[in-house]
């Protein structure tokens, strides 16, 4: 079966920064794919190449088998792109914004009005559609921002951090709407800083760091990569070097990493049970000023693979 959206070997350089290197993945019809990465990982740059805004230095993109570089208009007609920033006209109403982009993207006039109503309903803004966009809340703008990408019934929806700066009510409306679209068979590429959103919405996740995809799989597969070990973050005060040596040798500790002058990260089987031993081991050399146990989940995997947390 042809993938709805596929890319291989994508790279892009900005001056000295290799923003994206050799990125490739494929999204099947009705599949939701999450791209998870810290700030500056290259998510937006990757998406810009997927939607034809940036020319890749290497690699290629196909949409439902159509090559983006060779037939840009045909390929783009199948993509619904939601930019990371709100990209709408503040002086127009929500409905007028939708009408403009719908017409621009070739919807027949007869069909357009009905389609706008459908989309407004989907994003839950039917009752506020005729207010000026400039007067909307951040969450409402985000919802129209998504709606504008849905008018032409794309095969794949590309969402670049769609819930940034959004109130809980709008976030729920957005996630519900996205899930409904995926259930109806739309392919989805979703990037976010919010682990729980990606876990909830996506079937498969690619973890991107420094422009490379460092791991890819279902949530289950990714979590299994760090095994059943818990991650323990410690903040120490005193003879940190001495304490670190002790911790490394401790039974149950699979891996120990110095992450800062006074901070240590341990990977340990049954973290909660090792904790008392950790405190004892450190005692006399250093005092533990803070401790955090992260059980195996996507967040822990992410931490393990990229060495950084999703949110600071």
């Amino acid at each position: 079966m042809t993938a709805t959206l596929a890319c291989t070997g994508l790279s892009k350089r900005f001056g000295d920064v290799l923003a994206v290197q050799d990125v490739g993945f494929a999204i099947a019809p009705g599949e939701a794919y999450g791209l998870l990465g810290p700030n500056g990982a290259g998510k937006t740059t990757t998406i810009s190449m997927l939607v034809g805004l940036l020319k890749p230095a290497t690699g290629n993109v196909t949409v439902c088998g159509t090559d983006l570089a060779a037939e840009p208009l045909a390929a783009k007609a199948k993509i619904g792109y939601v930019p990371q920033e709100i990209a709408l006209y503040p002086e127009l109403t929500g409905r007028e914004n939708l009408r403009f982009f719908g017409r621009l993207f070739g919807l027949p006039r007869r069909e357009l009005a009905a389609r706008i109503d459908e989309v407004l309903d989907l994003v839950g803004l039917s009752d506020r559609a005729d207010g000026k966009l400039g007067t909307y809340s951040g969450g409402m703008k985000r919802r129209i921002n998504i709606g504008a990408a849905l008018l032409h019934r794309p095969e794949v929806l590309i969402l670049d951090e769609p819930t940034v700066g959004v109130d809980p009510q709008s976030r729920k409306a957005i996630l519900d709407g996205v899930e409904r679209l995926v259930a109806d068979g739309m392919a989805l590429l979703y990037t976010s800083h919010y682990m729980e959103e990606v876990e909830r919405v996506c079937d498969r996740v690619g973890i991107i760091d420094h422009g490379r995809i460092v791991a890819e799989g279902t949530r289950h597969e990714l979590v299994a990569m760090v095994g059943s070990a818990d991650t323990i973050e410690l903040m120490l005060d005193g003879d940190v070097d001495g304490a670190f040596d002790k911790l490394q040798a401790l039974e149950g500790v699979v891996e120990a990493v110095r992450t800062g002058t006074g901070s240590v990260r341990l990977l340990a089987e049954g973290g909660r049970y090792v904790l008392p031993a950790i405190i004892t081991a450190v005692d006399g050399r250093a005092t533990v000023t803070a401790v955090e146990v992260i059980e195996p989940d996507l967040e822990a995997t992410f931490l393990h693979l990229t060495g950084s947390k999703l949110r600071d």
Binding site: L53, A74, K76, P83, I86, L104
Partner: peptide
């Protein structure tokens, strides 16, 4: 600046 140019350019238009 508004991002609307990129949204247009990402659409199926020359």
């Amino acid at each position: 600046r508004q991002g609307t140019l990129n949204r247009m350019r990402a659409g199926p238009i020359p």
